Simulated assay, not measured.
Amino acid sequence: MTNLALFDLDHTLLPTDSDKEWGRFLVRTGAVDGDAYGRANEAFYQDYRAGRLDMPAYLRFCLAPLAQYPRDQLDAWHANYMKEVIEPAIRPEAVALLDKHRAAGDLCCIVTATNTFVTAPIARALGVEHLVGTRPATAGGHPDGRYTGDYVGTPSFREGKIACTEAWLASLGKTWSDFPHSFFYSDSANDVPLMERVTHPVATNPDETLRDIALARRWPILELFQ
């Protein structure tokens, strides 16, 4: 039977943070105020690492630039971002991990807090069909509409990752019980709720807090980018 394989993205499949790097890319292009945006971007990132991120406040911050520019401009910038930042960061170890689960016939999905504008092209570059992420709102709800700076539904963050994953499974006509085994690979203590939900949590390139939790609970630790 098919198993379920879930993967966090930033610092798990990628040795970097795609959301933070997108913000830094916007600073380099001049799309945002360099000093102010750069300081806020770093502060939010440190809050995330410390487990104290105000997610609604962060989403207002990181989605605001999407509302300031038309989609064709954003897409052009994102294509350059992929070439300059993401493609050089895709490591063979991450591809091999994905390939292992794909070869086994597992249903694979990236489950990330980062918004889907940033992450959908990354998932495609990694060859992963399914993506669960925070969804930016568009004018009139049209898929190709201009971004509003708001988000839709539950952010895919902490306990919200469980709700978003279950909604995605339901869209496929599936539930957790359809899978004899479920895996979730993550680097972050913020992902402990979803790690507790699967049958096989794997602390992958774990931060200090998650490493301590994994050791205490005897979860496997995978150093993917040694």
Rank of each mutant, 00 (worst) to 15 (best):
L215N: 12
E21A: 14
Q46Y: 05
T175P: 01
I122R: 04
N205T: 12
G133K: 00
G51H: 06
T2K: 15
R60L: 06
D33R: 12
R102D: 01
T114C: 06
A137H: 00
L169F: 01
R211C: 10
T154M: 12
A120Q: 12
Y58L: 06
A139L: 12
D191L: 09
P65S: 11
N205A: 12
P70K: 08
I221P: 04
P136F: 00
R24K: 09
Y147E: 05
D144C: 02
H181N: 12
L66W: 07
E84I: 10
Y81V: 02
R197L: 14
A36Y: 03
M1P: 07
Q46C: 01
H101Y: 11
V192H: 03
Q68T: 09
Q226K: 13
V95A: 10
R146W: 04
T116G: 02
V85M: 09
R102E: 05
P206N: 11
F7L: 10
F61D: 06
M82Q: 14
A139N: 00
L224V: 13
D54H: 09
K161F: 01
T119I: 04
A125R: 09
T204I: 07
R91Q: 14
D207G: 08
A163C: 02
Y69P: 01
R197G: 03
M195S: 10
P15I: 09
P155V: 00
F7G: 03
R49T: 10
L9A: 08
P155Q: 04
T114K: 01
D207N: 15
E196W: 04
G153F: 01
A139T: 08
G149I: 01
H142T: 09
R28K: 14
V27W: 02
Q46E: 13
Q226V: 09
M55R: 13
H200V: 10
Q46S: 05
G140S: 06
W176T: 04
P70N: 08
E87T: 12
R146I: 02
L131W: 01
T134C: 05
A57G: 15
S171N: 08
G149F: 03
P201H: 09
W168I: 07
W176M: 15
H101F: 12
A167I: 09
L98V: 06
E93Y: 03
T2C: 07
D106T: 03
N41S: 13
F225T: 04
T29Q: 15
D106S: 08
S177L: 11
R217Y: 03
T204D: 12
D8V: 02
G38P: 00
A104V: 02
V152M: 10
P88W: 08
G30M: 10
T2G: 02
L63M: 07
T116S: 15
A50P: 02
W77V: 08
Q46G: 00
D106V: 05
K161V: 03
T148Y: 01
N205E: 13
A79C: 05
Q68V: 00
A79L: 07
G153C: 03
A5I: 06
P92S: 13
E42C: 02
D191P: 00
R49A: 13
P143S: 06
T112R: 02
K174Y: 14
M82K: 10
L98I: 14
R158H: 09
F179Q: 13
A43D: 14
Y81C: 02
D187N: 15
H130M: 00
D19A: 14
G23I: 08
D17E: 11
D178M: 07
P206I: 06
G38E: 10
K161S: 04
